[in-house]
């Protein structure tokens, strides 16, 4: 391994200086990119879910083409991998994982959470998904099938959860407030 004696923080310092020197990335560009990345958050995905629950046409668009649906919500998707949307229905639950690394629908949910990147999550999702969900406090009925979907660098997935009972008449903003990050990966389900 090259530069094995260097600490990664020093390597970053060196990279930062060299990339600026070569006109590839300067401090202002890096700061701008950090701000843009920090701005992406699960609230964006939650707004999509809430709209899908209240707007039949949008729901159809979202299931057919997640990228177009995100763009319709003003979320920038240009240059990013396509977004697929997995619809939870009675009797079928979806769970998203990236067994090889950490591919995540970042455009609509923000940075992947720590657990999503962990070895235990990646190992268990495809072998013992029902037990894995229990670690997140999610107990699915025995007759609900779990379909596990492995993300790749070239295709990202999010889950469209089922709208919980007891939310009749709620508007999209109120619905969006009950949708959490984990609901859109499938480790939890929204409830009221």
């Amino acid at each position: 391994m090259i530069l094995g004696d260097l600490d990664e923080r020093d390597m970053l310092k060196g990279l930062r200086a060299l990339l600026a020197e070569q006109g590839i990335a300067n401090a202002a560009e890096i700061a701008e990119r950090i701000a843009a990345t920090d701005a992406a958050n699960p609230g964006q995905g939650a707004a999509m879910v809430a709209r899908a629950w209240t707007d039949r046409e949008f729901r159809a668009l979202m299931l057919a083409d997640g990228t177009k649906a995100a763009e319709a919500m003003g979320i920038p998707m240009r240059g990013l991998p396509p977004l697929g949307v997995l619809e939870n229905v009675p009797g079928l639950h979806h769970l998203v994982v990236c067994t090889l690394c950490s591919c995540y629908p970042r455009a609509v949910l923000g940075y992947p959470p720590f657990w999503y990147k962990s070895a235990a999550y990646r190992a268990k999702a495809v072998r013992t998904p029902r037990a894995l969900l229990r670690e997140f406090g999610t107990e699915l009925a025995r007759d609900v099938a779990i379909r596990v979907v492995d993300s790749t660098a070239d295709y990202r997935w999010m889950v469209l959860p089922e709208r919980p009972a007891g939310t009749d008449g709620w508007d999209a903003a109120r619905l969006a407030a009950i949708v959490r990050e984990g609901d859109m990966i499938g480790v939890t389900v929204p409830s009221v």
Binding site: T99, P113, F114, A120, A123, V126
Partner: peptide, 22 residues
């Protein structure tokens, strides 16, 4: 080493579900 789907050594390890800020 990165091909972790179903790897037995991690099946008994608890998932750390706590938030970790970057």
């Amino acid at each position: 080493m990165h091909d972790l789907g179903g790897v037995p050594r991690f099946l008994c390890e608890a998932v750390d579900t706590a938030p970790h800020a970057l």
